[in-house]
Nucleic acid binder design. Structure first.
Lengths: 358, 358
DNA sequence: CTGTTAGCGCTTTCAA
DNA sequence: TTGAAAGCGCTAACAG
């Protein structure tokens, strides 16, 4: 009688021989399909357990069944868009709940890497490694990969939109609306020169910020000025520098912090260098990724981007798509929420989305 | 001439036909092998790029080449051993450096999940999904999976040891020595009744703690007392409770905190409830995962477990094994370091390994 | 330098 | 309820 054999590689045929049935029967047992007598099933299972048989996943996928692996793609390198540990773990836990508990692998890919053939962040989909793909992070404005994913018909979800692909399966926040609300709020308070710290230049969320900001200004009868919008990277030093530069214009009396950094110290440092007093001669509306995440106490208002909330809903829709309960891309776009001065008692430690380089 | 075709599935044979060469040639081009003329190579690559061809990874693996995927297994469920976000990200970054930059996928699996066939945390190895496997987290004392992994000859690395498998490929810290050093240090300071908060009951690191503690006591001519060792879970409340219970014994004048929680508030709460003053009528040696991670200021000494350091070296060895530069399991065991009262100026924010449930 | 061919282990028709 | 056999896309052995 065969023991758990370290040397023999057991295939489905070996199991079938051992059990005196055909490979098909074993296949059906392994995949929990009907049409096998209870007696045969238990006999086969006993052998499988005894010899420690597992189906070769490559062969299984090859033959046509969908892969059982959910891929996570990072369209922007981590050095450029440093997703925070908190967000990563948050994502992890959700993926585990929705997919891994069904036996699906969760797979990460780093792009780009060296290879004879050029590839992209959806490699796992093209190689039939993934059954579905979550694209975590902002898309570059000129991204073309997501279009090919969309056209492939495979389930996917992007944590962001793309102007050039309106049908994109997405779960995100309306950054344009966020910028619009922030600017309008400050304009309504009487400011005429509202500056903006703008993150994600070259990426879709950056473009959305610009659009929303300009729309609010035009509605107020003002012409957007280039000097009032500063692109920033996700770095404390850079933000302090850019705040300094923006506030060097003495006519600037209000600032939107859409840097995404949620970092009070960098903002304060920049103000101080410019000889300004935050909350006194400069009003500020910072953006936050948690409902009452305390960015700056001196803020006259705060914009909450319910990114996790949108992502959470989007992932659930993706799970339905993957598991056959829906057939179409999903579009989850949450509106941001502007709150006037949050009472100190309600302020919470920010649950950051990104980390700083420095 | 064919365009990037959304409908046609391109196989290696299609590419070969299109290029007027054989499949083998295409295969060699795709895999960067020698023996293809520059002209043929570029012609093939041009077609590949044009139609967006990618090799089917299942078929590739099936044919014998090793999978290009590194698996991360969590032998204990996250709800039981809550690895911290910091450690997770730390691991992530290292895996990316060592593997993903070579084009290897990083794959996570949750265990157990429902399936007709019972499986274990090394499923990805048995299914030939993984090329190698990192086992992140402590092993249960009765773990048998790792033995089968070891016997399979596939590269693997455990962040911990197993008494019953001395040859286990591991990267860890000598917890037994840690407990020994901690207990001896306190005994040498004159204490006769040294209590210990012990984490990971049922897991190898828990067993190691007990052994080291008992060895120190016996060396000092004392018999270990059961009432002086308390198993704790990774929960603040539980730790506070257990400290309270241990210090209720009025003869206990010293405490080893090998809970792994690095949580001063829980320790203080427990002391307070027992009517003791930490650092005055109770001396404490807490365990820390960062060299000068401040666990409790009142500590008379501190034990540093260089877990990340060991893991880092182990992962490098694993990478060598995977990439053919070594053939054997590796055994990286770092000794813990006991430091007497760390000057306040050197104390750092702890870089926690685990998070709390509560 | 290149072509032909035999499987890898599985699922899935088509038959019984 | 079960078996036999085809074939998924690829790589490697063998041939030229």
């Amino acid at each position: 009688m065969a023991r758990p054999d370290k040397h023999k590689k057991w295939t489905i045929v070996d199991i079938a021989d051992e059990a005196g049935v055909s490979a098909k029967t074993v296949s059906h047992v392994v995949n929990g399909k009907l049409g096998v007598s209870e007696e045969t099933r238990s006999r086969v299972l006993r052998i499988i357990e005894r010899v420690g048989y597992h189906p070769n996943i490559g062969a299984r996928n090859l033959r046509g069944t969908k892969a059982n692996c959910i891929g996570i793609a990072l369209p922007a390198p981590l050095e450029e868009v440093p997703l925070s540990e908190e967000f990563f773990m948050w994502l992890f836990v959700r993926l585990f709940r929705l997919f891994a508990s069904r036996g699906e692998y969760i797979c990460f890919d780093l792009t780009p890497h060296r290879a004879p053939v050029k590839t992209d962040y959806a490699r796992g989909l093209w190689e039939k490694m993934y059954r579905a793909c979550v694209i975590a992070g902002p898309l570059a404005c000129d991204d073309s990969t997501v279009k090919r994913i969309h056209a492939s018909g495979e389930p996917y979800l992007v944590f962001g939109r793309l102007d050039s692909l309106p049908a994109c399966s997405c779960a995100t926040v309306d950054y344009e609306q966020g910028a619009y609300l922030s600017a309008k709020y400050l304009l309504d308070r009487g400011h005429r020169h509202v500056a903006m710290l703008k993150a994600f230049a070259g990426y879709q969320p950056g473009a959305e910020r610009s659009r929303g900001y300009e729309r609010a200004l035009r509605e107020a009868g003002l012409e957007p000025e280039e000097r009032l919008v500063q692109s920033v990277s996700l770095s404390r030093n850079n933000i302090a520098n850019m705040v300094h530069r923006l506030l060097a214009h003495r006519d600037v009396t209000a600032l939107i912090d859409s840097s995404g950094m949620e970092d009070a110290s960098a903002l304060r440092a920049g103000c101080q260098r410019a000889g300004r007093a935050l909350g006194k001669d400069v009003e500020i509306v910072p953006w936050a990724y948690a409902e009452n995440g305390a960015v700056v106490r001196e803020a006259c208002g705060q914009l909450w981007l319910p990114v996790r909330e949108a992502a959470s809903e989007g992932l659930e829709e993706l799970a339905k798509w993957v598991h056959g309960e829906r057939r179409e891309p999903c579009q989850v776009v949450y509106p941001p929420v502007l709150r006037e001065r949050v009472p100190d008692t309600e302020l919470q430690k920010p649950n950051r989305m990104f980390v700083s380089f420095d």
